[in-house]
């Protein structure tokens, strides 16, 4: 695997609050982490721990109050095509066919029609939807819709794909299936992925590193590197080991509050 001196993405001491005056709520405090090229990094935590906010800041959708976000050493100021976000639910334009939805990201590019077609078809083949070009989003299942969204992201050939609980709305069979597909595609294209999830299995199954966040305000509590070889078996002992290790972090985080009562 390729190792480069400058990380693909760097988050340094990011603070973020919402609201103003007395109602101000701090959602992120001193968040610092980095993502290397070709890595899958997961931001993991309970609902409301600020992980989605952190992802939005990473993508340039929201501004940090303090700290900086760098992409290949350059500060991130607004969303760009080099960093494509996949949302939990709405990713597709319902008035565009599958083909047109995937093409959307390439329409502004100065590409020859042939090259454009090749990129679009290549991406659609990777997600296994090359035979559904003329279908509309409402004719597809939730899982297939997310595949189209993944194809669009791949066709753009971004540096990083950001995913905000992309499989949360799917049933578990579909979810397992798509996770497996995602790993296969990621391996083939060496895509860098930053993923937000509260699903512990998803975190262990997909990630090279899991960044565990605590809540109120959201802080980075611990980073766990998952050394188990991919593809991973969900029933393997190693899988259970990392699962437990992450779970332990959450029991620890409750014990940290406990001393207040012990005094």
């Amino acid at each position: 695997m390729l190792k480069i001196a400058i990380p693909m993405m760097e988050v340094i001491n990011v603070d973020k609050s919402f609201g103003s005056g007395e109602k101000q709520v701090k959602v992120l405090s001193q968040a610092t982490f980095h993502v290397k090229k070709g890595e899958i990094v997961t931001l993991f935590g309970k609902s409301g721990c600020g992980k989605s906010t952190l992802l939005n800041i990473l993508g340039g959708f929201e501004k940090a109050d303090k700290g900086s976000i760098r992409h290949n050493g350059e500060p991130v100021l607004k969303p760009t095509k080099t960093c494509v976000m996949l949302f939990q639910q709405i990713n597709l334009l319902p008035w565009r066919s599958v083909l047109k939805n995937v093409e959307l990201g390439l329409e502004g590019e100065k590409l020859k029609p042939k090259e454009k077609w090749a990129r679009v078809m290549d991406a659609l083949k990777l997600v296994g939807l090359e035979n559904s070009l003329d279908k509309f989003p409402h004719e597809l299942s939730g899982g297939m819709q997310q595949r189209v969204a993944i194809a669009r992201a791949l066709a753009i050939q971004p540096d990083v794909i950001l995913m905000d609980e992309p499989f949360a709305a799917l049933d578990s069979f579909n979810r397992y299936n798509l996770q497996q597909e995602l790993l296969r595609i990621q391996k083939k294209k060496n895509t860098t992925i930053v993923l937000v999830t509260h699903d512990i299995d998803e975190a262990v199954y997909l990630s090279d590193r899991v960044i565990i966040m605590s809540s109120h305000p959201g802080r980075i509590q611990k980073e766990i590197t998952i050394t188990q070889m991919k593809p991973r078996s969900r029933t393997h002992a190693d899988f259970q080991y990392f699962r437990r290790k992450i779970l332990d972090e959450f029991q620890l985080s409750t014990e940290l509050i406990a001393p207040e009562y012990n005094i």
Binding site: G59, F61, P79, K81, C83, M85, F87, Q89, L93, G105
Partner: peptide
């Protein structure tokens, strides 16, 4: 707003 976020991400602006 999700549609607008997609547009922002894909750098689609103004007339387009």
């Amino acid at each position: 707003p999700s549609y607008l976020k997609i547009a922002e991400n894909l750098e689609i602006r103004n007339w387009e």
